[in-house]
Amino acid sequence: MKLLEVRGLKASVGGVSILKGVDLEIDRGEVHAIMGLNGSGKSTLSKVLAGHPAYTVTGGEVLFEGKNLFELEPEERARAGLFLAFQYPVEVPGVSNSAFLRLAYNTVQASRGGEELDPLEFDDLVREKIKVVEMDPAFLERSVNEGFSGGEKKRNEILQMALLEPKVAILDETDSGLDIDALRIVANGVNSLKSADNAIVMVTHYQRLLNYIVPDYVHVMDSGRIVKTGDKGLALELEERGYEWVRAAA
């Protein structure tokens, strides 16, 4: 059984059809990159998989470890091991980052029959995990993402990934808004979390992230479908030749 199987997925937002039949298979230990121009539907795909309420699934199916993903609420998907690193992480003023991280961690742990941690125990854990993204512990005491720079927000997303230990992590434009140092740190973090049991899906516009997190498969999306799949060489070719030739070929 594959980890994630997407079959003929169609989805719309506000009555406008965006996904027009996406097919994709992802297995344990794999790294996938989904590339495409703005408006090709790649961000919509990640939001639909995570269960964003603004999108309506109009056709097809998605199986997560053989089970119908769309029967699960967003929080149930998260507990089952699906993780979305947001393109624009949401600021939550008034909620301390450490309290939020612990609440998320304990909720997910409880659902998996794991051990919940009190604030002191959790502090030890989060200070260990925070090293993965080289984040200043001072950010734990601030409100969730409030006033964080683009790079700090993305690091905070990967910190959440490190804590929640997902089976499938979808990174939606995680490279956007990052300078080269921040990009390297975030990529190193993701690489250190990669294992034979989980899968990483990078949704990205540019090839540069793929220099740091090397994909096994590269998919090109256009007009709501995956129109081409290849290995990492395809990403380099896109970088060089643009997207037009894939379109023409498809």
Binding site: H52, V90, T107
Partner: peptide, 18 residues
Amino acid sequence: DPEELFYLKSRGLDEAAA
């Protein structure tokens, strides 16, 4: 804010907790 609610749910919190 529905975006804030979704963000919290995507981290495992149910509607009431979020």
